[in-house]
Design a protein around this nucleic acid. Sequence first.
DNA 1: ATAGTTTTGTAGCGAACGCTACGGATATAG
DNA 2: CTATATCCGTAGCGTTCGCTACAAAACTAT
Lengths: 208, 208
Amino acid sequence: MRTGRPRGFCIDTALDRAMTVFWRKGYEGASLADLTEAMGINPPSLYAAFGNKEGLFRAVLERYDERRKGLMDKVLTAPDAKSVARLFLEGVAEFTVDTEGRNPPGCLLVQSGLSCSDQDIPDALAQHRAEKEKALRERFERDRKDGGLPKSADPAALARYLVAMANGMCVQAAAGATAKELHDVVELALMAWPEAEKKPAKKLQRAV
Amino acid sequence: MRTGRPRGFCIDTALDRAMTVFWRKGYEGASLADLTEAMGINPPSLYAAFGNKEGLFRAVLERYDERRKGLMDKVLTAPDAKSVARLFLEGVAEFTVDTEGRNPPGCLLVQSGLSCSDQDIPDALAQHRAEKEKALRERFERDRKDGGLPKSADPAALARYLVAMANGMCVQAAAGATAKELHDVVELALMAWPEAEKKPAKKLQRAV
DNA sequence: ATAGTTTTGTAGCGAACGCTACGGATATAG
DNA sequence: CTATATCCGTAGCGTTCGCTACAAAACTAT
């Protein structure tokens, strides 16, 4: 059994509350006073658990990915490439406007620090965004192999296109765009999607 | 004639230098020490000329629009709607990767403060971005009237789509995307563009 | 019980922040 | 020239920043 006085707060709950602060104010705009107040703890507890402000932020990013893993899994296991694209963009449209008030509008990976006095923060965010682009690209590479995308299609470009679209929607959501406005953008974005050359093998269960 | 000791620095040059700092470090990441050093002046000169940090930032935003007005005018006077879309996105692709090292990658209106402790900054940026979207929308409304866009097209949605695309490209440029990668995205984005129902009246000089 | 370990709240550290008081410098006006 | 007006550099204001020293508290191990 672990010795010593037990921690008096829940790590994940504290991370969720810190996430909201970083999301709304950005990495540099979120002060330690803001964070500790929202998390309901004192600075020494924060530093004992997360090392420093940057450590807390990185833990928040991991927590963010964790919370969105379900949606991303659902997207990546869609039956065909165009469904992947549609589910991804529609998911972003719904998530970023935050109708339930759980999260600030936009996306933490875009909002919280595109430019900072410390370049490590933008780099960390870019890395997390790149992971999602990579997952889409790998999915589209498989689609291209089995005919779900034409041989002329460029899986990397398609993934980059979707991620760019998603990031742009985040910027607009943060500026107050409505869900309908974003869905209109999604419909337009999907017009660019290449048609399959032949019917994809729908009977086969796709590996993920 | 204006009395008193003349100002010892050029306002526009100082704004250009401050712009680079805000661009690279964001509004909150740019300290007064960073700014005064880059501008080559002392704090009292900065405050006499611009009021405070936020005043300087707003002046930088105006300067930014001014410097990009030429490109935007060229875009808005293109002969047809699709050319407007192409020139706009290709302009963004070239501008945001900054091959000449004059500017940091990305776009000041996206980079410098999506989230801040002071909400006025994100609001000011959103307003500047909205102006560009409005200009595109109004152009497309005219195109739709004279047949350059089909009646089924939604000018507001098209403008929003282009701006979202542009903002997303800015995010990727800031994360290190190359010019070619962005141009691939542009080609895809233009696949979504609606075809004109009839030939636009090319002979007429379009008013701006 | 006692020792050992970890977390907690208080209280405050040094540094950096945005900003400004002040006096000397440099111009025009008369 | 003197008077007035504006700008400049120095130097430092009060506040907030990220962070931590310290001792009491709360647990396990023996």
